[in-house]
Design a protein around this nucleic acid. Sequence first.
RNA 1: GGGCGUAUGGCUCAGCUGGUUAGAGCGCUUCCCUUACAAGGAAGAUGUCGGGGGUUCGAGUCCCUCUACGCCCACCA
Length: 849
Amino acid sequence: MNLPERPTLDGIEERWAAQWDTDGIYRFDRSAVRANVFAIDTPPPTVSGSLHMGHIFSYTQTDAIARYQRMAGREVFYPMGWDDNGLPTERRVQNYFGVRCDPSQPFIEGFEPPYRGDPPKDHHAIPVSRQNFLDLCEQLIAIDEQVFEDVMRRMGWSVDWSLLYSTIDERSRRVSQRAFLRDVARGTAYSQEAPTLWDVDFQTAVAQAELEDRDRPAAYHTLAFHRTDGAGDVLIETTRPELLAACVALVAHPEDPRFQTLFGRTVRTPLYGVEVPIVAHELAQPDKGSGIAMICTFGDTTDVTWWRELQLPMRAIVGRNGRILAEAPECVNSAPDGKYAAIAGQTVKQAQRIVVEQLAASGEMIGEPKPIQHLVKFYEKGDRPLEIVTSRQWYIRNGGRDAALRTALVGRGTEMTWHPGHMRHRFDNWVEGLNGDWLVSRQRFFGVPIPVWYPLDANGDPEFDQAILPDEADLPIDPSADVPAGYRADQRSQPGGFVGDQDVLDTWATSSLTPQIASRWLEAEGDMFDQVFPMDMRPQAHDIIRTWLFATTVRAHHEHGQAPWHHAALSGWILDPDRKKMSKSKGNVVTPIDLIEQYGTDAVRYWATSARLGTDTAFSEDQMKVGRKFANKLLNVSKFVLSFGDVADGATLDGTVTHAVDRSMLGKLDAVITEATAAFAAFDYARALERTEAFFWWFCDDYVELVKGRAYEMQTPEGAASARFALRCALDALQRLLAPFMPFAAEEAWRWWHTTSVHMASWPTTFGCTDDGLLEAPLEVLSLVRRAKTEAKVTQKAPVATVAITASADQAAAIVGAQADLASAGSIAEFTHVTGSPLACEIVLAAGE
RNA sequence: GGGCGUAUGGCUCAGCUGGUUAGAGCGCUUCCCUUACAAGGAAGAUGUCGGGGGUUCGAGUCCCUCUACGCCCACCA
């Protein structure tokens, strides 16, 4: 026993985090059998410079569950990873070093970036080679990941750091490419030339799951198309007049009476005089605009549908850089007076202004543009509206084009238990609303390369349907550096030779494999897949159900024919005090490290674990203050209980805890242990905390105060032994019950009387006592005595001459049983009893008080 | 338009399968240096459980309906 003079929370995080690390207490036992493993598919956070409160919130909730499972006897598989490949890292590198990737630049040995952190606003990014850019990515993620790891260790998350991975590291690249190649082999991945949503700034294709709608100003322009039969004009409304040169048809609803006579006829476009047909399709909405719309290749996703289903020609005019192509479509090119030349090379925004001027001059725009607000699709990380361009891309089948697969994937959702249950609807909704396969290729740099080459024909054109695939044993590969079997390096880009796929996999195409990556699926060294898969728990936030949760389910379905986890635990968001989602752009972000330093880790954890799964929660420093008070109290009450010294050797609970009051207290505690255990088993850590906390304060404020005197041996040795033993039992259970929530304070107090960690201790079991209610009446009397003293404005120590009690027979019996404790706790000299109801006391303070 | 969620004292939230006068903490007020704890303790005030209707002996709790707020999806002419 080693009790401090004055318990303190200061410095306990550093001390115990270091000790846990030294002792390796969270290390996964690779000899564990599957049935005894609790495997967590930890979300690998996107490394971005700093963890935010959302991370603190949800990862702490997961950690509480992990700690419970560990104490409950499961071997916990709790990896951590960094999601460091992909656009967020590229963009951060650009902003941090003041560079941009330009594959046409030569590699510079020992390149030194112009800045390291915060280039001035007027700095123009310096173009650097692909390899220099990738080197800078590696440099920055190394810095960022260390910062993340430091904060995580201070948060006390009980991850096994020996399982650490990053989604760009060699093993992840190998696993990702292996899984992709297997998808290709079984036909669940394929490449196709097709119109694709395209971000013109990042110059990459974007998947459906990464879209978001933003409300943007626009304007309806009314344009006159001229009937080729000379019977006048057809008026359409458009928000994108700049795409007029890309117009391939007009469309109206097949049953719209206004246009029945027009179907099958043709009109000439304004400005360019291109003849286009008037067609019918049920997606045309009679109540929108003038009821008849122009179809362009491509203004929006509906255009793509029309273009495909009505088999219309292709007249693309928007390039991958978001500017109007230099070459006009042939039919436009043959049109008179070079109107197209004026917009060639312009951005779509500039082109719109020019086209509107041209239309106004030609009289083919009717009236003024009518401003509106409407929703436009953006890449969620992008700054300009998405365009649609045609390109060859890789896809993984996700049910978007296959009802049977869709049904199967919804079925995978039912294999998991969702916490809270209603989150499953979001999954079902998303799967059922998919309208295309998952586009996984990205025209970016810092990612897992698509492990494919293509043979070049005699003209030097790639034969995309003859893709050359590497052997799994050679992974990971970089097709732009490695040479496929049967070819020589000097055949690269030569007719009759080969070319590597330039693209990388979408970051989700790798992070959807976290169960496989973390478990080292099919890796030569340390493969734990069969020990941990399907994993027990996937913790994550609810806003990425459509991306990460769904994508992981798709991969597991194709590769393993089952759901990747048994439980999906969805955390809520952190809201600022105004109940808005906290985000950097709103400037209301608080940094976790400041809070840890101000309130202590356990206090921050208390706040995080007070919130239920799936519930958006207000950020609350008040809760952290409460948490700090709680942790502090745990230390102090531990010191008090332990100050009585060790219990006698060989003493048993039944032999020693003889006092009814003490057994009642343990009975209450039994109920709490039972409830907390059931709650934790159902992932409801918040309920476990709430019950434990309520008991804890009752224990400190009422029970301890009541029996304190007896424990000090002011009455009988038997009574003291009973109280001390009961106190010790309760403390033992409380420290264990609180260990998942306040791992540092619990460990600090536990180590005063143990040589091993509380986090290696077993979860508490019940004492076999029952709460017979014998404490209720005595504590009511104590409360009344306290109130009398407060009202008399005297100290609680002030002596009481008499307490005249009116109570029922049962209550009186309980009070008499605890009368000695009451006398001590309340400094009460004399009790008198009258039978009656309700319970009441007449309290006479000692003379002179 | 489709789906989901939330609505309980000034604030943050409990209240599980319906059962005695609706709970906790914060904040507020008053008092107390009491030998585990003043980064503490004792006590007090504060609620038409969003509105309306229904089921029931009994509803914050179940059903219907309305309202407000939030989220996901659809909606780009």
